[in-house]
Design a protein around this nucleic acid. Structure first.
Lengths: 224, 224
DNA sequence: TCATCCTATCTTGTATACACAGTAGTTGAC
DNA sequence: GTCAACTACTGTGTATACAAGATAGGATGA
């Protein structure tokens, strides 16, 4: 541990963006953030630099940092790439998973099941994340795992919105079951295509997503 | 452009790392870099923050920044992911390419041909990069294009080493030809698998890569 | 009344200063 | 002679100060 101030600030601001406390397009005032966190501008700037490098904020010269607004097409493209990477992770996991991975996957799946039966979207959202992280880990490719986790993290807010679509939780859980089965059976191509379909935003889910993107920018009331 | 100092510094240091001026594992002294570039430590730190966010350097608290050394397995994993992403870009390009993309691809391919016939590895290296960027652009997925370009850039030094392997240039060019054909014919799955094979480091190429990784860390004489 | 220009203020970008942690070198003791 | 501890120094982390550009508001002219 023993992290530095700018590390904590980076996570803090990143979470703020992902949770929607800072809206897309919003300007991030350095002095304001500095006073808010009780630090000087220096570590704030360093945190913003890191966020700009991973594409969460954009720094325009002499004009400050703004929260990047990906827009519907870009979000769709991100899901497209996520589907491909997850498919790859699933395929590798099918070939390489150990007994430990097997237990982790089954345990994560079971927790998703509990969350789904108790009809708790927030809990399912959390356990779903753990489930996917377990797949990445089972791929035994450190780099792929990192890339997947990073993109997964970035897509969090949109995934969260999707879960509130009617019946999505139930469908999602059913797909999880098939995915686990394919991976544990060592069927790489089945795991790949099942995961692709699981992630991809196709058909109705696309219009659901676009519709939800509009809702994301809230009526300014919960800002404080 | 009117970029800021830290933008230029970031590119400068990044190029230094990719070109091997800074060796993997080497400590990046802030004061030394500052005096070298004739600036203060502030923009240097901001540049290092960005490089740490994209994984080129690692910042350990109170112990400064060091150039990340991926190690053979990690490099292999990066090529694995690159192969998948390029395959995806090729598949999308096959479906979505416009007449403009078509001309750009053919032009880039022709330039590779010229470089190959004149037996110029450096020139081929450059034109090869342009060729692959043309494929990314033809995918018409802005996010995928960015991801591919970033990873491609990061793998530059290793690709450069590979080109010096005997006959690689000729084989590479032949593969390019087949890839162009598949894309222009609209055969997505052919384009995908051809590109996967083109990028993947398999069989002999893996041992070539590992052997070249050793050469990269030079005999410490050119440090000054 | 509207548009344009000028000015004042606010914010970013860079430099510098100071505090604290880590590291290395030296000295002393076993 | 070797190991450990203490001290001095080097370098990072954060704050603050200063300079320069951008924006907004007001004033003047058409």
């Amino acid at each position: 541990m023993a992290e530095n101030t700018f590390h904590k600030l980076r996570d803090e601001i990143e979470n703020g963006i992902l949770k929607g406390e800072f809206e897309p397009g919003e300007r991030l005032d350095e002095v304001q953030l500095a006073t808010h966190f009780g630090v000087s501008r220096t570590p704030i700037r360093e945190a913003l630099m890191q966020l700009s490098a991973i594409g969460l904020v954009e720094i325009r010269p002499r004009r400050g940092a703004v929260v990047v607004d990906p827009g519907p097409e870009r979000v769709f493209e991100m899901f497209e790439v996520m589907a491909e990477l997850e498919g790859m992770a699933g395929a590798l996991a099918a070939r390489r998973h150990t007994n430990q991975d097997r237990s982790a996957l089954l345990a994560a799946h079971k927790k998703c099941e509990s969350a789904a039966t108790s009809q708790d979207p927030d809990s399912y959202y959390y356990e779903n994340e753990a489930f996917h992280l377990a797949i990445y880990a089972a791929s035994h490719s450190g780099f792929l795992e990192e890339q997947c986790a990073a993109l997964h993290r970035r897509l969090r807010p949109y995934r969260r919105l999707q879960l509130h679509v009617h019946n999505r939780m139930k469908t999602s859980l059913k797909e999880h079951g098939e995915i686990v089965e394919a991976i544990l059976a060592g069927d790489a191509e089945a795991a790949r295509s099942l995961l692709r379909i699981h992630i991809a935003v196709q058909g109705d889910r696309f219009s659901d997503l676009v519709s939800n993107l509009g809702k994301r920018t809230r009526p300014k009331s919960t800002t404080a």
